[in-house]
Computed example of a mutant assay.
Amino acid sequence: MKVVTPKPFTYEGGDRAVLLLHGFTGSTVDVRKLGRFLQKRGYTCHAPLYKGHGVGPDQLIQSSPEQWWEDVKNGYALLKNSGYEQIAVAGVSLGAVFSLKLAAEHRVNGVVSMCAPMQAKSIEDLTKRVHDYALSYKKIEGKDAAQIEAEIAKFKLQPMLSLNELQKLIVNVSQQLKSITIPTFVLQGLLDEELYINSAKLIYDDISTMEKQLKWYEKSGHIITLGKEREQIVEDVSQFLETLDWG
Score class of each variant (00 low, 15 high):
59 Q>I: 09
29 V>E: 03
207 I>Y: 05
204 Y>Q: 11
199 S>F: 02
243 T>D: 10
236 D>S: 10
92 V>W: 11
26 G>A: 08
8 P>M: 13
52 G>S: 11
60 L>D: 07
179 S>F: 08
160 M>D: 13
152 I>E: 05
148 I>G: 05
32 R>M: 04
183 P>G: 03
230 R>A: 09
243 T>Q: 12
10 T>H: 03
22 H>K: 04
239 Q>I: 14
97 V>N: 03
203 I>Q: 06
137 Y>T: 09
180 I>T: 03
130 V>E: 10
147 Q>F: 14
143 K>H: 11
65 P>R: 05
23 G>H: 05
152 I>F: 04
128 K>D: 15
73 K>I: 14
67 Q>M: 10
194 E>M: 09
152 I>A: 07
234 V>M: 08
150 A>M: 08
113 S>K: 02
225 T>G: 03
139 K>M: 08
146 A>C: 07
207 I>N: 09
124 E>D: 14
41 R>D: 12
224 I>E: 01
83 G>C: 08
19 L>R: 01
191 L>K: 11
140 I>N: 07
17 A>Y: 00
210 M>P: 14
117 P>V: 00
230 R>V: 07
2 K>Q: 15
234 V>Y: 07
137 Y>R: 14
106 H>R: 13
245 D>A: 13
80 K>P: 02
166 L>S: 01
19 L>G: 02
19 L>S: 00
148 I>P: 03
26 G>H: 02
68 W>S: 05
126 L>M: 06
189 G>P: 04
110 G>E: 00
49 L>M: 11
14 G>F: 03
158 Q>E: 12
140 I>A: 03
143 K>T: 12
77 A>C: 15
202 L>K: 13
1 M>P: 11
109 N>C: 13
